[in-house]
Design a protein around this nucleic acid. Structure first.
Lengths: 217, 217
DNA sequence: GTCTATAAACAGATAGAC
DNA sequence: GTCTATCTGTTTATAGAC
């Protein structure tokens, strides 16, 4: 279409489809809706991505890899354990604020087609492996009650991700506007740290205070 | 169909559709698949339920009400607070074992059609209201770190439900068979209590030890 | 109440013109 | 690269015979 600079069609489709799926929550958006959003003809989606499924796979893989890379960087850093976890929570919640429906999409797609999970979890460096050593040390020092690394990580991720997945239910149940809901998710950063460590989140050593919510590279 | 006793067609459709949706995880089962499962003609689904949507609404409402009723009974009982919570975890996890895809279904449907949530959450007695008094008492006595009733309940439900929603991802990531996954969910009962109260789950005062996993009325 | 046959709507994908 | 037109398959829903 003439309003689009040119030759960026593929990128535009990806960007707009990503927004439709992960930000606006149109998890079942049709190729027509994607095309409309991108301001291009429907056939172009097939020209560039062959099928709707391949487009989705591409988007999902990219988004998951980006998020995982960020989490991995923190967990494998040299920071003290509790700072790692605090930053991990920050990253996961901020990512959830930016792409509120990404987790929803993953859950929906893997439930519909369990084979797809293998693409997403390949070359897997499990978070639990990255913190196992730290965790065992903390437990040995008596700073944490005994727990396996797997359950620790699953607890952490559950506390971060469930409120995203249940967004509609929670918003309705507690009568939250969209902005109130965003605030609620922000507040949960401290709540989650608190639930994990049973002590307040230290006010020091926060990487940044997010003066602007911009977070994606 | 002649193999079915008779006049129970409506009940059979409901039962089989429930199994398809909530137990087997065919969240997008077509009317044809439902009819096949029930061993009836596809047109009968429309005869009894008018449309696929109405069938789904009926199923969802019944399942949610049943689960909520059970949870409510425990939380509004006269039991000590920690026993209530322990039983609550038990109910939610056991319900998850029985209907592994119910929560998935709720999340998917409310994301697709946010209006539907109003049907599910009507006449709402919030769990957080039922335990608020208990919780404040516990906090006043110094037996629990300060937390709002809302966040407390959301933490609790997150820890119970997320592993259900992420079943496919978790199974793949940790190489769990179906039976290993069931065991994993069972184990989480103690993990969750532990995460909430930071003390081991007492071995006494458990309602039953589930000699048979049968749990629905 | 239960079936067959069919309508009606839709979505994904492709061929072929420009 | 981008468009229009069309094909194919799928699914819900209903009309009407039995």
């Amino acid at each position: 279409m003439s309003t689009i600079p040119e030759a960026q069609t593929e990128a535009v489709i990806k960007e707009k489809a990503k927004s439709l799926f992960f930000q606006k929550g149109f998890l079942n958006a049709t190729t027509q809706e994607i095309a409309d959003e991108a301001g291009v003809n429907r056939a172009l989606i097939h020209y560039y991505f062959r099928s709707r499924d391949q487009l989705m796979d591409t988007l999902l893989e990219e988004a998951v890899n980006e998020k995982r890379e960020r989490a991995r960087a923190v967990l494998s850093s040299a920071l003290p354990f509790r700072e790692k976890i605090s930053l991990f929570i920050d990253i996961v919640v901020e990512y959830g604020l930016k792409y509120p429906y990404l987790e929803n999409f993953i859950i929906t797609e893997t439930a519909r087609n369990p084979e797809k999970v293998k693409v997403l979890c390949q070359s897997k460096i499990k978070s639990s492996d990255l913190i196992r050593k730290d965790l065992e040390e903390e437990i040995a020092k008596g700073r944490l009650l005994p727990i396996t690394a797997e359950h620790f990580v699953i607890n952490l991720i559950s506390l971060c991700n469930y409120p995203l997945l249940a967004k509609t239910v929670l918003q309705n149940m507690h009568g939250m506007s969209d902005t109130a809901y965003r605030k609620f998710l922000q507040d949960r950063k401290e709540i989650i740290y608190h639930a994990i460590f049973h002590e307040p989140l230290p006010r020091i050593a926060r990487k940044e205070e997010h003066p602007h919510p911009k977070h994606a590279k």
